[in-house]
Nucleic acid binder design. Structure first.
Lengths: 220, 220
DNA sequence: CCATTATGTGAACTGGACTTCACATTGAAC
DNA sequence: GTTCAATGTGAAGTCCAGTTCACATAATGG
């Protein structure tokens, strides 16, 4: 897991001049670039190679940018796509963001602005990954124990409960066992406890909601 | 789990006429509505009551729509917010979508269009919850191990791999360790292996997709 | 007040998931 | 064929989450 590998950017535009300009700009700023002349070719490239970012022109023949965007995100959901277009419109922006674009810039682009956007998108990706990873680990670990799942569900439906109530409700004889799991859950910020009562945090609520979704699928 | 409870929509606009019009339109189409005159009041209402959708005017005194949007999504991440504005701009649309708006409509609104958008947003929400069915216990257990998660993800992205490839890819020195986890995964029908190669089953694919959703869900 | 129940701590123990090792096959390369 | 890597099995060992126990302190109720 090397720290600062050069990021690979795929430039997609049907105009040669633009491809060349962008490529020069980005290579000159420490990125590796490759180009594609159409949506179709872009899809081929992201399928066979690993890119971090795609700069995608919205208006292109063969396969237009919006279609390409959707296809790309389907193939590589974690790839970041920045849309660039000469005809920036509200609908276009909305559509693009809905379909998973990370940003939407007008053309002609301002080099400094484009570079800033790219660097921001990269930072966001890093942040997303790190945070997600940790949260995910903790969440899955917590949910791996049936008792902890039960506690979460119970607190979700009853709101706020005291230790004894939880212990009785789960029909556990040793209350210290419950305390053990409560501690674990608290450590992961899924529950909290104030005046001798335990309740879910927002994270805890979220997790229960997720669990319910998962549980609902079970009933079939 | 009643099938078709009426959806609750919160209308937020500082103009009385608009609130009245929207309210009539939506009530007449089978929705329950409530209104708020400012971002601040909207936040109070979504905090204390349960709404499914918020129609939010972007331009308002006291607390503007964008600020309100962010606050609302923080309080109730799963609530769907549709922005409405007289001054639709690309930047505004981009910002709103980034902050979690489900759509961004121009004002004056076209009734049929608004209704269509609302109904679409509701469908999307259902779909988000709809997903697929899995075995809860097994799934959570399998996912509690980082190695197994990595194997699933790896097979998902690469399709089909042999033992050595998996071992090398995960940078594990002892291949028998990998075999152990592969066996576990196979036991739970998440992977399968034919001619000296392992691949995900349909269930395995579903679980990976689920994992991705969980990741996204946890990071708001 | 005392008795009883609720809540909590820390140490010792347990079980089983996970790892490691030693070795057996099977396949591919030459 | 022979050799080496790839794949696999089963037993033994390790490790740590989870449990249990023994006991301490705080609240509550009569």
């Amino acid at each position: 897991m090397q720290a600062n590998k050069k990021k690979r950017i795929l430039i997609v535009d049907d105009e040669k001049v633009i491809r060349a300009n962008l490529s020069d700009l980005l290579e000159g700023n420490g990125y590796l670039t490759d180009t594609a002349v159409s949506g179709r070719q872009a899809i081929e490239k992201v399928t066979s190679e690993d890119f971090d970012i795609v700069l995608l022109d919205l208006m292109m023949p063969v396969m237009d940018g919006m279609e390409a965007l959707k296809e790309i995100k389907k193939i590589r959901p974690k790839i970041k796509v920045i849309m660039i277009t000469a005809f920036a419109t509200v609908e276009g922006a909305v559509d693009a963001m809905k379909s998973g674009a990370s940003d939407y810039l007008p053309k002609p682009y301002v080099p400094q602005e484009l570079l800033a956007t790219i660097s921001r998108v990269i930072d966001e990706a890093k942040f997303e990954k790190g945070l997600k990873r940790l949260r995910l680990e903790d969440t899955l670990f917590s949910l791996s124990s049936p008792i902890r799942r039960d506690i979460l569900m119970l607190l979700y439906s009853k709101g706020s409960l005291r230790l004894t109530d939880i212990t009785k409700n789960l029909e556990i004889d040793d209350h210290t066992k419950v305390i053990f799991h409560l501690k674990t859950l608290k450590e992961f910020r899924m529950i909290d406890h104030g005046e001798r009562s335990y309740h879910l945090t927002r994270l805890g609520e979220k997790i229960v909601e997720f669990l319910k979704i998962l549980g609902a699928y079970l009933s079939e």
